[in-house]
Computed example of a mutant assay.
Amino acid sequence: MNGRQKVEKKELLQLGAPEIVPDYPILSVDDLADQIAEVLNFFGLSAVMCMGVAAGAYILTLFAMKVLSAFPLLVLSAKVSHLADTLVTENLGKYELRNVFADQYASDIAALRNIFHDVYRGIRHKPLIIAPGGFYDANWFQEFVNKSGKSVDVVSHHIYNLGAGVDEHLIERILDPSYLDGVASTFSGLKNILQKSATKAKAWVGEAGGAYNNGHHLVSDAFVYSFWYLDQLRMSTVYDTRTYCRQSLVGGNYGLLNTYTFVPNPDYYSLLKLTDTRASNNKMTLMHYLCKVLADRSPGLLDFHLDLVSLEAATKVMIYAWLEKENYSTANC
Rank of each mutant, 00 (worst) to 15 (best):
N146C: 01
H157V: 10
I36Y: 06
A321C: 04
F227H: 13
H117I: 02
T315Y: 03
E96W: 00
H305D: 14
M284A: 09
L218G: 01
P25I: 04
T241F: 14
S236K: 02
V183M: 12
V205A: 05
F63H: 13
K147S: 12
S220M: 08
L256E: 04
L32Y: 00
A331F: 05
L13N: 02
L190R: 09
Y229V: 12
V250D: 00
A33G: 07
H216R: 15
P127G: 10
L249R: 03
G149Y: 06
L233F: 11
P18S: 14
L311P: 00
L218V: 08
V100H: 04
L32K: 12
K94D: 07
V21R: 14
V309I: 08
D153E: 03
Q232G: 01
S185F: 02
L306N: 14
I171C: 12
G52F: 00
G210V: 03
K316A: 04
A47G: 05
R234G: 13
A198Y: 06
Y320L: 11
D85N: 15
L190F: 03
A110H: 05
N2H: 07
G56F: 03
E172N: 13
A203D: 06
E324K: 04
Y229W: 12
F71W: 04
K150H: 09
Q35M: 11
N139Q: 14
N41H: 09
S236N: 11
L271A: 15
D103I: 06
A314E: 15
A314L: 11
G149E: 04
N99S: 13
G206P: 01
N253E: 13
T315M: 05
A37N: 13
D307Y: 10
L311R: 10
G206F: 00
E38F: 02
K202P: 05
V67E: 09
A110L: 05
R113Q: 10
P127S: 08
V88E: 12
S148Y: 03
V29A: 14
I171W: 00
L60S: 03
M287L: 14
D231W: 06
A33E: 03
K9G: 00
R173L: 05
L128A: 10
K9H: 01
A321F: 00
S107P: 02
L83M: 07
I319G: 04
K6C: 12
L15C: 08
V166G: 01
L180W: 02
A138W: 02
